[in-house]
Design a protein around this nucleic acid. Structure first.
Length: 762
DNA sequence: CTATGTAAACAAC
DNA sequence: GTTGTTTACATAG
């Protein structure tokens, strides 16, 4: 396939059996393999040692055996009640034992109970079969789509041996694991999203915090360096993403154009040395084009700062997307994602020597942004089992997370649902309630902005803009057209034009801008005013005008989860009125960096010729408007019943969607969680503790009961985790997912009936 | 079609 | 010259 740099490969991680009903056979046939029976352990090629180890048992009742079909992969049967640490310990030991050459991937599967231990209460009866099936999810971050398929099986193209095995080499499937998705952290996030795993989240938070800190510093050491090392290849990030990284690297979350240039040059040598001078033009173009970038002018008007619209800011930082160099180190969660980059210029590349092929290791230090979060979320939907997972409870640690998942999710939604892509249309909602053109916009500017953001602001204290409080304070002018809703609480508007972006009619002429002045509040005072300008009016006629923020949901399906208590977390502070702000809507974006905003609203505009944007009332802010979600979202019933789960989805999504984004369907996280839950986490530092297991389990209120039950039943992990032990850490874990609930194919194409292979285990 | 990237025309400083 | 806006066009998906 093509590698599309842009697309988040990740999504592809695995082919889901689900939606698709593919032939029961295999998904793609990639591997004809699996008739369970057949495969014999023979393959063990990889693991010779493994062989010996093959059935090793570890104290906790953990058994490790060679994967029947996958090289370098061992299957770890974990008793339901196994302690995570013990699992880790065992795996670590194993990994070390084997050495680098040894198996580096493990698939964890839960077993009813280790022999040693009494079988789990719930044998999980999921479907009729074994509960146990596991599948592995592979992810593909890399440039290559590689693993498209799936699971572990080697990438189609790939030779069995190579890529596949070593991470180093392959990114393809397995290796990529290292990268982001596989991390535990990542999982955690996910969980947080829907699931609400607490423990993990916490870690994440911690990390995030780190990031934040670093970011403030400005350069994440690792990141920059690593990147540089890699050479001056063109970064896999879009200008929009880089701008965000730059801006978010500052405490205030604002940066002058020049500083943006500088930051980019400093962090991506490509632009300093190789890129054509036109890149700066592109930066400017992006700043002007995307609504998420808001220009603020200091009171005195002398300095213009570019900021990221709070509701759109996911607080992405470069380090978040970097792959950690050292294994051990925890990586930052990067899940964010979006898309990224694009095509390298052919031309440009010339210089780059490296580019061609570096050892993999060397190369990819930078991770492309992941696909949107939402997509990740999607998977969660699953039915039942998962449901459990869902507890949002957790706090969202990261800003990121927050951002991503966001906000919205957290907010209200209680159930998970995937929203179909919505079109802007919704916006119909009016932008502002107030509408008054005037008021609507009030914002707080400057740092103040952020406050509104539901999630973010809340969560962390950190860097958020809000915090910065300091200077800004006061009056700010903003000119902004479109965004109606900014978060800000109180603002006074100054507007000149008065009408809101929309409203105004926009004269044909140029755009009216509004300026708002916000008072900042409290603290400081007035010192600065900023003016924010936005282009409001313009719509885009044909061309692209500024891209407005879209409602979150739009693109991708999102999940909304129910929140349970968890939700509260963020909420803690904020109850977020759901509606009022409609927070939900806002946050959702996950698109790439910009997530939400990318596209403008073009559509409707009838108009056009001129810039006047406003033509349609609706349009402008689509993003901000809340999405239907709300309403729609509301609709969600709790989680769908397991089986049902998919059912609904499709509708909303439409088959297509699935196809496009494969991942979605996957239920990833459940299992891990469960694993975790089963025992006290060792892992977790305590913080996690917060999330009590209980939370996790607790179904969300809304959710219908059934699911829950189901979940619990399954709890046994049905899922497997794949660990890459290359590092000692568990950093990479993939879950596998089986969907017990699904009737469809009992055994997914991918799925393997472990019992067959490894009878001993069970 | 959309998202991006690039180039360029223009305007305001 | 710098900074911002907008158009236009090209390309990949």
């Amino acid at each position: 396939m093509k590698t599309s740099p842009r697309r988040p490969l990740i999504l592809k991680r695995r082919r889901l059996p689900l939606p698709i009903q593919n032939a029961p056979g295999e998904t793609s046939g990639e591997e004809p393999k699996r008739p369970p029976a057949q495969q014999e352990p023979g393959q063990a090629q990889a693991s010779k040692e493994a062989a010996e180890s093959s059935s090793c048992k570890f104290p906790a009742g953990i058994k490790i055996i060679n994967h029947p079909t996958m090289p370098n992969t061992q299957v770890v049967a974990v008793p339901n009640n196994a302690n995570i640490q013990s699992i880790i310990t065992a795996l670590t030991a194993k990994g070390k034992e084997s050495g680098s050459s040894g198996p580096n991937k493990f698939i964890l599967i839960s077993c009813g109970g280790a022999p040693t231990h009494p079988p789990g209460p719930q044998p999980q009866a999921q479907t009729s079969n074994d509960p146990k099936r596991t599948e592995v999810v592979t992810e593909t971050l890399g440039p290559k789509p590689a693993a498209r398929d799936v699971n572990l099986p080697r990438p189609p193209g790939a030779l069995p041996g190579q890529r596949w095995e070593s991470c180093a080499g392959g990114e393809a499937a397995g290796c990529t694991l290292d990268n982001s998705l596989t991390n535990i952290q990542w999982l955690g996030k996910m969980s947080s999203d829907g699931l609400g795993s607490s423990s993990i989240k916490q870690e994440m938070e911690e990390k995030e915090n780190r990031h934040l800190e670093q970011s403030q510093v400005e350069e994440p050491p690792g990141a920059s360096t690593s990147w540089q090392d890699s050479a001056s290849e063109r970064p896999p990030y879009s200008y929009m993403a880089m701008i965000q990284f730059a801006i978010n690297s500052t405490e205030r979350k604002r940066m002058t154009l020049k500083d943006i240039y500088t930051w980019i040059e400093d962090h991506f040598p490509y632009f300093k040395h190789i890129a054509k001078p036109g890149w700066k033009n592109s930066i400017r173009h992006n700043l002007s084009l995307h609504d998420m970038f808001v220009r603020e002018t200091s009171a005195n008007g002398k300095v213009s700062f570019w900021t990221i619209h709070p509701s759109a800011n996911r607080y992405l930082t470069l380090d978040q997307v970097f792959k950690p160099l050292d294994p051990g180190a925890p990586q930052s969660p990067e899940h964010l994602e979006s898309q990224q980059q694009k095509r390298p210029n052919p031309e440009l590349r010339r210089n780059v020597t490296i580019k061609t092929e570096l050892p993999l290791g060397a190369r990819r230090k930078m991770k492309p942004l992941l696909p949107r979060v939402s997509s990740y979320l999607v998977p969660i939907q699953f039915p039942v089992n998962q449901s459990l997972v869902l507890q949002p409870s957790v706090k969202v640690p990261l800003p990121l997370a927050a951002s991503l998942m966001s906000s919205e999710l957290a907010r209200h939604s209680k159930r998970v649902r995937i929203a179909p892509k919505v079109l802007l249309a919704e916006e119909g909602v009016a932008p502002l309630p107030a509408t008054g053109p005037v008021q609507e916009d009030r914002l707080l500017l400057g740092e103040g902005l952020s406050p509104l953001l539901p999630v973010q602001s809340i969560k962390e204290e950190e860097p958020q803009p809000g915090e910065e409080t300091p200077p800004l304070g006061r009056p700010i002018k903003v000119e902004s057209p479109p965004l109606e809703e900014w978060p800000s609480p109180c603002l006074s508007v100054k507007e000149e034009s008065s009408h809101s972006w929309e409203g105004s009619s926009h004269s044909p002429t140029p755009r009216p801008k509004k300026s708002y002045s916000g008072l900042k509040s409290p603290a400081r005072c007035v010192s600065e005013m900023l003016v924010i300008k936005r282009r409001e009016g313009r719509e885009m006629s044909r061309s692209r005008r500024k891209q407005h923020l879209l409602p979150p949901c739009l693109d991708e399906p999102e999940l909304l989860f129910s929140e349970g208590p968890g939700a509260s977390q963020r909420a803690t502070e904020l109850p977020l009125p759901a509606e009022s702000s409609e927070p939900a809507s806002q946050l959702g974006y996950s698109q790439e960096e910009g997530g939400p905003f990318k596209t403008p609203i073009k559509e409707t505009l009838p108009i056009s010729s001129t810039p006047s944007k406003s033509v349609l009332p609706v349009t402008p802010e689509s993003w901000r408007l809340t999405p239907p979600a709300k309403g729609g979202g509301l609709d969600f019933s709790p989680v769908q019943p397991p089986q049902a789960a998919f059912g609904p989805l499709p509708d909303s999504l439409g088959p297509t969607d699935f196809s496009t984004t494969p991942l979605k369907s996957i239920p990833l996280f459940d299992s891990p969680r469960e694993l975790l839950n089963s025992e006290p986490f060792d892992l977790t530092s305590d913080p996690f503790s917060t999330s009590s297991p209980s939370d996790m389990e607790v179904p969300k209120p809304h959710s219908p009961g059934p699911e829950v039950a189901g979940l619990s039943a399954n709890r046994s992990l049905t899922e497997g985790l794949v660990l890459d032990t290359m590092n000692d850490s568990l950093s990479k874990i993939l879950l596998d997912i089986s969907f017990p609930g699904l009737e469809e194919d009992p055994l997914g194409p991918d799925s393997i009936n472990w019992a067959q292979f490894i009878p001993e285990l069970w």
